[in-house]
Simulated assay, not measured.
Amino acid sequence: MIRDMATGQARRLWLSLPAELARRFRPHADRLATRILDEIQHAVPEYAKPLEGQFGEVIVRAIEQAVVSCLDSIEDTRSTPDRWGKLFHEVGKRVYHDGGSLNSLQAAYRAGGQAAWRYVSNFGQSMRLPVPMLCVSAEAIFAYVDEISSYSVEGYTLAQARATGTLERRRRRLLELILATPPSSPAAVASMAEAAQWRLPEWVTVVALEPLTEEQFAPTLGDDVLLDLEGAEPCLITPDPSRDLPEMPHWRAAVGPRVRLSDAATSLHWARRTLELMRGGVIPAAQVVHAADHLTTLWLLQERFLLDELSARVLAPFASLTAKQQLRLAETLLAWLKCNGATLEIARLLDIHPQTVRYRVAQLTELFGARLGDPQERLKMQITLEAHHLLGTKPE
């Protein structure tokens, strides 16, 4: 499914530039193509080799014709409607058939775009071109890179899908593309979804899985579910977890937030973090646990380094105490914050005598002083103490 580049954003931007600019730049075309190739080979290890044979011929021709295409667009020189699309589609196919990776292909386009912009920027400054014209040129370069990159990614993924052979493998590859970090291009996902016969939903939920038995029973789920039970960290993508999870009695499931398809990797991250905290006893164990039910816990514990830094600052007065004193006064301080200083409520919560509460609060007042009356300091204390309480760690 090759689109017509002539209707793209990049062409509209090129056409907004004066034709005289293209005529003045044409003598630089070969030099720019060489600079782009050099930058790609320098920045992308997979391309740091002699470009020989059909593969090298296609890459070099694509770079040269990409430069010419931009100049033609500025002068509104019409090309065969699908000529450029077919060329960059072929680049993607050729990279796949030569064993290249999709990540390196996309990195090559980014490196080429940056090299082109540096060259054009230097040219523009030497010619004293207006800043707005240079800004449009930069926007056009990167829009053009996005367009031709999408053609190559589409060619790559379609070639890959045809070579893969089975629908199941195509769906596994689709799941990998959807969950990739950094995100795969929409064109790559759409092409693989077409090859995998999977209709792209707007909203999905990602579920992290863990077997409850030694034998990993494969569930029978709908055609709209993408499933990986063989990887090191099993998971699935579904538009309807309430329908599918009851069909998985032999698996523990941590359900990530419901997100748009493009944010599926984020849903997986929080699903796996939920499963991790459940394994550690921080979140109560259950066969199905929803990240959405534990958002405060996930937020508080998302970065242990920051917790330790905050703790060292906020709870610094505890540093001189023994471990036993730290735990006792931290417990009392958290209760005092939760109960707004009500002695009897604190006593009931901690199951201690009210006089003991008063004695401990007096110690806390001596340690923290005016900070106990500062709303911002109290909030920091409660956040820190709640996190330590969840982790079962010593506040210090």
Rank of each mutant, 00 (worst) to 15 (best):
C70A: 15
S150W: 01
D228E: 11
P249G: 07
E139I: 03
T181V: 13
R35N: 09
H388V: 03
S267T: 11
F25T: 05
V120T: 08
V44Y: 10
P186L: 05
L367S: 00
R31T: 14
A29H: 07
N340I: 02
R172Q: 14
S262E: 15
A159V: 06
L179W: 07
A342V: 12
Q65V: 11
A163R: 11
E247P: 02
T356C: 01
E75R: 09
E303T: 11
V259N: 07
A330L: 04
V259Q: 11
A330I: 04
L134Y: 06
Q325W: 00
L385I: 04
L329P: 07
M127E: 15
S267L: 03
T384M: 00
A342Y: 04
T384R: 02
V288Q: 12
A264R: 10
L167H: 06
G341K: 05
L300G: 08
S137D: 01
D224R: 12
D244Y: 06
Q114M: 10
E64G: 12
L310P: 03
I141Q: 06
R26V: 11
D223Y: 08
L310A: 14
T332N: 00
Y119S: 07
T393I: 05
L334P: 02
Q326R: 15
L87C: 01
T296C: 04
R78M: 04
D374H: 08
P257C: 12
Q326S: 09
L300E: 12
Q302D: 15
H269M: 13
L306M: 12
E202W: 03
A33C: 10
P211N: 07
A286G: 13
L174W: 03
N103L: 15
V207Q: 06
S267Y: 03
T220E: 14
R11A: 14
A323H: 08
H250Q: 14
I178K: 07
E276A: 12
E168N: 05
S150P: 01
R23A: 12
V288C: 09
A342K: 11
A195Y: 02
G155Q: 01
Y119R: 05
V136Q: 04
E90F: 11
G99W: 03
S121P: 00
F368K: 04
D374T: 06
I59Q: 09
L129G: 03
E396H: 09
H28D: 09
D4T: 10
I36C: 06
A33M: 08
L344P: 00
M127A: 15
E75L: 00
Q355R: 12
A193K: 01
R243V: 10
Q54D: 14
L385E: 01
T205E: 09
Q160D: 09
S69C: 10
L329S: 08
I74P: 00
E377W: 06
H250I: 02
L333G: 05
T332L: 02
F217C: 10
D293N: 10
T238I: 02
R199E: 15
G100Y: 08
V259F: 02
P27R: 06
P18Q: 06
E331F: 02
T365Q: 04
A140M: 00
R118A: 08
E168Q: 11
Q382W: 00
D228I: 09
R273Q: 15
A19T: 10
L277F: 13
A208D: 09
P186E: 11
L390V: 03
M192V: 05
S191W: 05
Y109K: 05
D224C: 08
A66H: 07
F142I: 01
G231L: 03
E139S: 14
L295D: 07
G112R: 01
L344W: 02
K49P: 00
E202P: 00
S104A: 15
E168R: 11
